[in-house]
């Protein structure tokens, strides 16, 4: 099984590398988002406002008070840094969904038939898709991270290789769970429109009900409840904890949660995929 999985994963990688327009497009979206949200909503800009008739000294004090408040809420005075780190988690979500589209397409163009009639375990078809997505996310996250740095993302001063590795690990855990779920689902869908509809239904709510764009304590309490079980939140929190040093009371609890959830989603995705591949 391993060799078939490797061959098919290699195929995923080769296809992806050769399809440059898709590669570029998949990067443009998150960069656009970072720029849009991060730069235009920069909170300190609000504080820089000049208010007519108020003495300069008072303004200075208000400004510093607000900065402290912003720092306390976001873990950084720079909202751009907040969004850029959160976007790493959101990006894994989007890419996991994109990866699943390939499954529907391969059924449509008939390539899946080719695989189903080959003497390879059907699980290798599923795993190659998941691994392919995880590979893509790894590379794209690195690119996104670099671009974030170039655009002015501020890391914590004490950042080390372990933090970067941990960040990657957190993103991979999230990707494993989400890719498994979406891939498994895609094996049971024959029409890509249905998948796009599901993507629209799932992606934005998952993003907004997480701490990726806004901190939890700014949310109404019902949304906080949702955000607390949302794996995007846990990943975003872990990434911020590791990259910019935003305090996180129990990082290990988040790791454990992500691991457990990913395993469950892997199981669900695997069974769904097996079901979807029973007959061609």
């Amino acid at each position: 099984m391993l060799s078939a999985t490797l061959v098919l994963t290699w195929r995923e990688v080769v296809k992806w590398v050769r399809r440059r327009p898709v590669l570029v497009m998949s990067l443009v979206t998150p960069i656009f988002w970072i720029a849009l949200f991060g730069k235009s909503y920069n909170l300190l800009n609000l504080v820089q406002l000049q208010v007519q008739g108020v003495p300069q000294v008072v303004l200075e004090q208000v400004r510093s008070l607000l900065s402290q408040a912003v720092e306390k809420i976001f873990g950084t005075t720079d909202y751009f840094t907040y969004v850029a780190t959160g976007m790493l988690a959101v990006f894994a979500l989007f890419q996991s969904m994109f990866g699943a589209v390939g499954v529907v397409f391969e059924r449509r163009i008939g390539y899946l038939t080719r695989l189903l009639v080959a003497p390879i375990p059907r699980s290798s078809i599923f795993f190659s898709k998941v691994l392919g997505s995880m590979f893509r996310i790894s590379v794209l996250s690195l690119v996104l991270f670099t671009i974030g740095l170039l655009m002015g993302m501020q890391l914590k001063p004490s950042i080390g290789p372990a933090d970067l590795l941990g960040t990657w690990g957190a993103i991979m855990l999230l990707s494993l769970g989400l890719s498994s779920l979406f891939t498994g689902m895609a094996f049971n869908i024959t029409n890509q429109e249905v998948l796009f509809a599901i993507a629209n239904l799932v992606n934005l709510p998952l993003m907004f009900s997480s701490s990726a764009l806004f901190p939890l304590d700014q949310m109404p309490s019902w949304l906080q409840t949702v955000a607390r079980v949302n794996p995007i939140s846990h990943t975003a929190d872990l990434v911020r904890y590791l990259l910019i040093g935003k305090p996180l009371p129990e990082p290990l609890a988040s790791v454990a949660y992500l691991m457990a959830l990913s395993l469950v989603l892997l199981g669900i995705g695997y069974l769904a995929a097996q079901r979807g591949m029973r007959e061609a």
Binding site: R11, I109, G110, T113, A118, P119
Partner: peptide, 17 residues
């Protein structure tokens, strides 16, 4: 599956490769 070859009625090759 090991001993058969199938040329299905619908095409199956990946036309992007």
């Amino acid at each position: 599956r090991r001993v058969i070859g199938l040329v299905p009625q619908d095409l199956t090759a990946d036309d992007e490769m």
